[in-house]
Amino acid sequence: MNEPRPLVAMIHAVPTGARIAQEAFAREFPQATVWNLLDDRLLDDARDAGGLTDALRRRMLRLIEHVMDGGAQGLLLTCSSYGEVVDTARARWDVPVLKSDEAMFSAALAGPYRRMAVVASTAPAVPAALAQLEALVPTVRPDRPVDIVTALSEEAATAGDPGATARHLADALHAAGGSDADVVLLAQYSLTPARDALAALVGVPVLDGAGAAAQELRGLLVPAPAPGEGQAATAAAVTR
């Protein structure tokens, strides 16, 4: 008998983020049925307005309501600019709703890392990521110190391949004094293809938001096997 596949919705603002998030879920949460919604004016309209307006918040909430009415059992907003709307959504719906990089930051803070580096290729991503990370410290890591360094490489945004992107990010990290970081956090989904190459260059773990979100939703939506259940199933298969 096939287990039901959890329906996970993702709301995207850019096609690149949508592709990377889908690849992450295929890798980390293949049990999910993924439902993608793309509104490619979300970022442009926010930029034109100078930030989120009440109208843009209502627009995002309508998109969230649409997937909730459609039976979504989990939701990921891949656009960090609309992360504040998640708090409103959580108060309205009893379904896991994640901000773009929230799971990554929580995983990093829960880990053994003391010095963390946040890397980005666009300037607005740096303060947005830093604000999210610092906001989680009191709840996830109240009793252990954490040192955060940020690095920006705008050259990485136009690099021709993941290897070149990784080299630009590594150079920026070195210039920012973050070469001794224990972990590197990618502030944008668009940097995910360079994750493995960057890890090889810097010699420490590199975490990405989409992969961490997929792992968290998998943990929330897929029941863990009961103690002994896996062994019992194996024994039954052997005796048949």
Rank of each mutant, 00 (worst) to 15 (best):
Y113G: 00
D48F: 12
I64G: 06
W93M: 04
V97Y: 00
L75N: 01
I64E: 03
G70S: 15
T88N: 11
S80H: 04
A91V: 08
A107C: 05
T88E: 14
S106K: 12
L130Q: 09
D87P: 02
P124N: 05
G51D: 01
S121Q: 09
P96W: 02
A55I: 09
L133Q: 05
V118M: 01
G111C: 03
S100P: 10
A103L: 11
L76K: 03
V97P: 03
V86Q: 00
A120V: 07
R59F: 10
A108E: 01
V126F: 05
E84F: 08
M68C: 05
A135F: 10
L130W: 05
W93I: 02
R58T: 13
V97G: 02
Y82L: 08
E102F: 04
G71C: 07
L76G: 06
A125C: 02
M104D: 03
L75H: 10
S106I: 14
F105A: 09
Q132K: 13
C79H: 04
S106R: 15
Q73Y: 14
S106L: 11
P124T: 06
I64M: 07
T78L: 06
A123M: 11
L52W: 02
M116T: 12
A128P: 01
R114H: 12
P96L: 01
R90A: 01
M60T: 13
M116A: 15
L109W: 02
Q132R: 12
D101I: 07
A49L: 07
F105H: 09
E65A: 15
V126N: 05
G71M: 04
A72W: 02
S81V: 15
